[in-house]
Amino acid sequence: MIKVRRLIKYTYEHIRRNGWLSFSSVAIMTLTFFVISIFIFTLYSVNVILHYYESKSQIIVFFNPQASQTYISQVKTNIEDTGKVTSIKFISKEVAYQRFVKLLKTQNPTLAKSVDMNALPPSFEVSTQNLSNLQDVANTLYKLKKNSHGEIDNILYFKNVVQFLKQAVSVISDVGLGLIIFLSIIAFVIIIITIAITINSHSEDIEIMKLVGASTTYVVGPFIMEGALYGVLGVFISSIVLYLIFIIISTYYRATILFPLEQFFQGVPLPHYSLFLVLEVVGVEALIGIVIGAIASSISITKYLK
């Protein structure tokens, strides 16, 4: 207990004596973890949205209106046999006609009346669990189309949104990771320098400490604690800042920022940041902060003691 109390006392003395330098160390750590947090939550959100679109994406197979029921059933069996399909919905000529009329009724009633039900193609709406399954099923369908005698009229396949999101995820990951590595290196170096300067301003203390029989752990402890503390403070301050920004946006900018976002992603369940998720992220970041800080100061002090 006495040891811990003295460790805290000396760590506090170091930080107080360093003033602005300690401040800049905490600031750079805060910035690093701020970026890391934003990166993690953005990636999480984009993944939630991506997952939604993936589950919603489907292939629509249009049959020739003259295609036989037998052929259509056979295609259904073929698609089901791939084992990658979650649902196949058959849209008969009648259903297609009803949809079409409903769509045109308000815009162009004359046109709606003039359409012949038999001119509309029956179709399948095929859904899969994820995008790669969708691709596989699409390939199967293209083969069937190639071998058909015009029974399969067209295959529509909405992959653009999903591909865009996948690309977005990959770009965010790359840029984010690059930024995190860059900032982590800067934070690491700044802590090494801060501790080196702390050590320099304490060289007399260290000399006397060793002279009166302080163990290496006793000498080194406060410096490592100092580095770790910079890391932890960075994590907590960045978390608080991020939380405040979130509160401010959701309170004062609901109409200007959140509402348009909700409009844009209409129907998409917006990601929910549970308390557990937030605590998990902050906890892991705090651990990383402690490790970065402690290792950086260990490097500094070990170099000095040698």
Binding site: R17, E204, E207, I208, K210, L211, V212, G213
Partner: peptide
Amino acid sequence: LPHLRREIGVVFQDFKLLPR
């Protein structure tokens, strides 16, 4: 080494006191 140092008291010409 720390145990040895605790058995030996040392005084220097320049005192080596901590100014703060």
